[in-house]
């Protein structure tokens, strides 16, 4: 499948700003999907609201672009109604972790089969750069003009604690690793989260002396620490700037039975 078999070419170029990490995540997803030889007609892309949540509308497949924060809930119903379809959720840090936080943790807990790609740009991109639940401490945003007084969430660690089957976090500077993790997630049953720390040069970078996408990528590179090598317990390396680093790598890879298997609506045997 060529790139523009995968995407809706008539909608190109997409709306994302120059240098926005969303497009990079799309590349890695397409690459993983294509290498697995998956079928677009059997996959539904679900999202909430935000720049990152626009991605499904660009893919040449069924897309459910929903309300802010609720993508996982929409996807849960869809999966139970049509267990034979593969569900991929594209979401953002605000969408998944703030307004959708309850659906997120309960989605992990239920372990309904879906792959959630959360593009964590540490900001509310679409609404113009307000602080999100992952904005690093002390950083600038339009709603934290004196620096962020709060501390960020660690979405990946939350997903592990809440029961997701597979959790990995990479940055847009780690395209090969990210592609590999997406492949693993696609092939795995249960609730899988891939968190991608990504750049929003327009609304995060510019306000934090990183207006250039490349500077942000360099920042990710400098501050990323492999999970095996991370300093100490989870609480110590929560997110960018809590301990001054992003922990990257696989956080968990386990095989809890997924919900639709337990309730017996699993109609498809093998996954592709």
């Amino acid at each position: 499948m060529e790139v523009f078999d995968f995407y809706r070419k008539d909608r190109w170029p997409h709306v994302f700003c120059p240098g926005c990490g969303n497009g990079t995540v799309m590349n890695c997803f397409y690459r993983a999907f294509n290498e697995l030889g998956w079928n677009l007609d059997n996959t539904v892309f679900v999202s909430g609201i935000g720049c990152s949540s626009r991605i499904p509308l660009y893919i040449n497949a069924d897309a459910l672009h929903t309300t802010h924060g609720r993508a996982v809930a929409f996807a849960s119903g869809l999966k139970l109604a049509r267990p034979e379809l593969d569900i991929v959720v594209f979401t953002g840090d605000g969408d998944l972790g703030a307004i959708g936080g309850n659906h997120f943790i309960n989605g992990c807990r239920r372990n309904i089969d879906m792959d959630v790609i959360c593009i964590n740009n540490n900001i509310y991109g679409m609404t113009g750069g307000q602080a999100s639940i992952t904005t690093p401490h002390d950083f600038q945003s339009t709603t934290t003009p004196y620096g962020n007084r709060e501390y960020p969430f660690d979405l990946a660690e939350i997903a592990v604690a809440a029961g997701a089957n597979y959790v990995a976090r990479w940055t847009t500077r780690h395209v090969h690793e990210l592609t590999k993790s997406i492949k693993i997630a696609l092939e795995k049953k249960g609730f899988n989260l891939i968190e991608v720390v990504s750049q929003c040069p327009t609304n995060f970078g510019r306000r934090n002396k990183m207006g250039d996408a490349s500077i942000m990528l360099e920042w990710f590179k400098e501050n990323s620490v492999r999970r095996e090598k991370a300093r100490s317990a989870a609480v110590d390396h929560v997110d960018l700037n809590l301990a001054g680093q992003v922990t990257i790598g696989e956080f968990v890879n386990r095989d809890r039975e997924c919900y639709q298997e337990r309730i017996g609506v699993e109609k498809h045997g093998e996954k592709h």
């Binding site: 190109w12 926005c20 990079t24 799309m26 395209v175």
Partner: peptide
């Protein structure tokens, strides 16, 4: 392929 995978606008082939 770092360039192709990274280009946010699918501009490199």
């Amino acid at each position: 392929e770092l360039c192709v995978l990274s280009c946010p606008d699918q501009a490199i082939s």
